[in-house]
Amino acid sequence: MALGTAESAVAARTRIRAGRHAGPTSGLAPGFAQANLVVLAADEALDFLRFCVRNPRSCPLLEVTDIGSPHPVALAADADLRTDLPRYRVFRDGELVDEPTDVTRYWREDLVGFLLGCSFTFEWALAAAGLPLAHQAQGVNVPMYLTSRRCVPAGPFAGPLVVSMRPFAPEDIPRAAAVAARFPAMHGAPVHIGDPAALGIADLSAPDFGDPVRIGPGEVPVFWACGVTPQAVALESRPGLAIFHAPGHMFITDRAHVEFDCQEQAL
């Protein structure tokens, strides 16, 4: 698959910033990694950093911005985290208060942005390996579920692991797991394969985020740690202000997928 050019990532962010794209970002800027967004006050940032270190599968940390700065200098120096995602979710004291397309009015000089790895990168690698993805074939957002597994807490941050699910034929699962494992900065290998009840998931047709997918005859659900986990944690930890991406509406970086491929980097 072609990697595209740096301009394609810039062009996608420009369209988003101008309000010309407000939907999910899957398929935008082909070849370029995308990221989950978490924004918190500086006095909560160190505890959240500890949370990421203790929960690397769900919160693989790519970048932390300077206090008050909306610019991710390592991943896309010209970008603005206040405007360059198609849709956001704003929480106050653990309550969802807004889902805007621009968070400039919420930005404060004490805010810190965290960018976390996104499964779109290993999805790119799965597709390149000839492993089709049900949600893409069905034209929907990937399904995501709250689980009964608890994250390792850090300070006030505690809560359930969120997982995303992709079904595969049994014979394809070892290869899918091996491909995803090459991208530890993008959630890596699956955390569970098979019975959803083992994760406390009662009904695969009723995801907590995203959309349900049809599971074909004989296919097995495969679950990955998901970057929506911090949003579930925010419901329990109740920070005064927290800003996130809307599920599936990611930040597009200037970094190519292959830069996060451990196998590629080892060559």
Rank of each mutant, 00 (worst) to 15 (best):
A2H: 12
L3G: 15
T5A: 13
E7T: 06
S8Q: 13
V10R: 15
A11S: 15
A12H: 04
T14W: 00
T25M: 09
A29I: 03
G31Y: 13
Q34M: 02
A35D: 04
N36T: 09
V38K: 11
V38I: 15
V39T: 09
V39I: 15
A41C: 04
D43M: 02
A45S: 11
F48A: 03
L49E: 09
L49M: 03
R50H: 13
V53H: 14
P56T: 05
S58T: 15
S58N: 07
E63Y: 01
D66T: 02
I67C: 08
S69T: 04
P70R: 10
P72M: 10
A74G: 11
A76S: 15
A77N: 00
D78W: 04
T83H: 15
D84Y: 06
P86N: 10
R87S: 11
R87V: 01
R89K: 09
V90R: 06
R92I: 04
E95F: 05
L96R: 11
D98I: 01
D98W: 07
D102H: 07
V103L: 04
T104W: 00
T104R: 15
W107S: 10
W107R: 13
R108S: 05
E109N: 14
D110Y: 07
L111K: 06
L115F: 05
L115Q: 01
L115G: 09
G117A: 10
C118G: 01
S119Y: 02
S119A: 14
F120V: 10
T121I: 12
T121F: 05
F122S: 06
E123D: 14
W124I: 00
P132I: 05
L133W: 15
H135L: 04
A137F: 00
G139I: 11
N141F: 00
V142S: 13
P143E: 13
P143Q: 12
Y145Q: 09
L146V: 12
T147A: 10
T147F: 11
T147G: 05
A158H: 14
P160Q: 09
V162E: 10
A176H: 11
A180F: 13
A180E: 10
R182W: 05
A185I: 00
H187Y: 08
A189M: 13
G194P: 11
D195Y: 00
S205V: 01
S205W: 08
S205F: 01
P207D: 15
D208I: 08
F209E: 15
G210M: 08
P212E: 09
I215K: 03
I215W: 04
G216W: 10
P217W: 02
C226V: 00
G227K: 09
G227F: 10
V228W: 05
T229E: 03
V233R: 12
V233P: 07
A234P: 04
E236Q: 15
S237C: 14
R238W: 04
P239D: 08
P239L: 09
G240N: 07
I243P: 01
I243T: 04
D254L: 09
A256M: 00
E259M: 06
F260L: 11
C262M: 06
E264P: 00
L267W: 11
